[in-house]
Nucleic acid binder design. Structure first.
Lengths: 189, 189
DNA sequence: ACAATAGGAATGAATATTCATTCCTATATA
DNA sequence: TATATAGGAATGAATATTCATTCCTATTGT
C-alpha cells in the first residue's frame, strides 16, 4: 500500500519527542514506533537533528497557515479577533494532539537550527502584531507584548497538557471558560 | 575553606538541568561546573537519577516551606491571600534563579521516582486548597481547580522564563501588573 | 532481471559509572 | 611542638553501556 514512511516517521517522532523530549528519544525508538527499520529514517532525514528541525518547522508552518486561513487579519474588533485566534489554537491543539506540547518543550532547544528559530520568531511576530493592535485600540493591558503573549500562551499550553494527560475533561463549556480567563488576563479592566 | 561539595554539585546541576534538560546534561559536565572530579558526584549520589530526584525534592521542599512560613493560611481575604501567594512565588523565583525553570521542565520527567512525584502532588495540593477556598467564597471562577492552577502557574513560569532570558526587564511595576493579570484570569467578573 | 527501497545487525563515538590511587585532615606519639 | 599515621574524601583514567549512524543484505515493484 501507499503508506507514506516519511509521515509514519514524523508521527512517531512527534509523539516521542513531546512525551520524552528530544534527548531521551532514541532513533531506534522512533523506528520501532513508526514500524520501520532504523536505517530507513536516514533515507528521509540526514540525521536526528534534521528530523527534529523538519518536524518543528512543519508544526509551526501548519500553525501559521491555520491562522492565515481565518479572518484574524480582517476582523476589526479586538475581542472578536481574540476569539478567532483562540479557536485556531484550540483546533490546532485538538487535531495535532502532540504538536503544541512538542513546540512548547522544544522551542528553545539547543539542537534547533537557524531556520527553525526564524520561523518561530515569525510565529511570535504574528501573535505580537495582534497584541500591538489591541493595545493601540486601548483594549489590552499596556504590558510588553512579549509578556502578554507569555501569559496567554503559557496558560493555554499548560491547560492543554492537563487535557492531554487526562487530568481535566475537554468540553465546549470548559473551552469557553478558558477563553474567557485568558481574555480577562490581558484586557484592560 | 569549608566549601560543601554536595552543595557545589547541586548548584551546578540545577543550572545545567534547567538550561539543557536532564538528558542533555552529562555527569562530567556537572563535575566540571562544580569543580569536582566526576567520581566525587558518586560519593554523594547513587547515580545521575538519584541526583536529579534529590534536587527536585529539595526544590519543592523549599517552595513548600516558603509558603508555610507566610500568612497564606491565616489570611481570610482571598485577594489578599493571592497577593501573599504571588509574592512567595516571585521571591522564590528571584532567590532561586533556576529552580522554577528546573521544576517546570522536569516535573513530568520519566526519571522521577515515586517520592518526587508524591512531593510534587503535595505541592499541587497546597495550591489547590487555596483555590477551593476562593471558590467557596464565591470569588474565583468555578472552573476545575487544576485548570485554574494551570492558568496561573503556566502564565507565571512562562513570564519568568522571559525575565531570566532577558527578553523583558523585571521591575516592581511589571510584577504588579503581572500579578493583576493572573488574578484577573481566575477571579469571577 | 534490474533498480529502488527497506531492514536491522554492526560500528564507533559518546556517556555513565567504577575503582585504584592520591590527597587531606585529625589524632596520636615522642 | 614536630612528626607519624590512619581513615575518610576526592580524583580522573579505565570500563561498560548506550545510542546515532552506516552498510550490507533482503525485499519490492517495474
Amino acid at each position: 500500500m501507499a503508506s507514506n514512511k516519511r509521515d509514519d516517521i514524523m508521527t512517531a517522532a512527534i509523539l516521542l519527542f513531546a512525551e520524552r523530549g528530544y534527548d531521551a528519544t532514541t532513533v531506534p525508538m522512533i523506528a520501532d514506533n513508526a514500524k520501520v527499520g532504523a536505517g530507513t529514517i536516514y533515507r528521509y532525514f540526514e540525521n536526528k537533528e534534521a528530523l527534529v528541525n523538519a518536524l518543528f518547522q512543519e508544526c509551526i508552518q501548519k500553525f501559521l497557515e491555520a491562522f492565515q486561513s481565518t479572518s484574524v487579519v480582517t476582523t476589526k474588533d479586538v475581542r472578536e479577533q481574540f476569539h478567532v485566534l483562540f479557536n485556531v489554537m484550540v483546533d490546532y491543539a485538538k487535531h495535532n494532539t502532540h504538536a503544541l506540547h512538542f513546540i512548547d518543550s522544544h522551542c528553545s532547544g539547543h539542537y534547533l537550527d537557524e531556520q527553525s528559530k526564524q520561523i518561530f520568531q515569525e510565529f511570535l511576530g504574528f501573535l505580537k502584531s495582534f497584541i500591538e493592535h489591541g493595545k493601540e485600540q486601548g483594549v489590552l493591558c499596556l504590558l510588553e507584548s512579549d509578556a502578554l503573549i507569555a501569559i496567554v500562551y503559557g496558560a493555554f499550553s499548560n491547560l492543554f497538557r492537563l487535557i492531554r494527560v487526562g487530568v481535566i475533561q475537554e468540553s465546549p463549556e470548559l473551552l469557553n471558560s478558558i477563553e474567557e480567563c485568558c481574555w480577562n488576563a490581558i484586557r484592560i479592566h
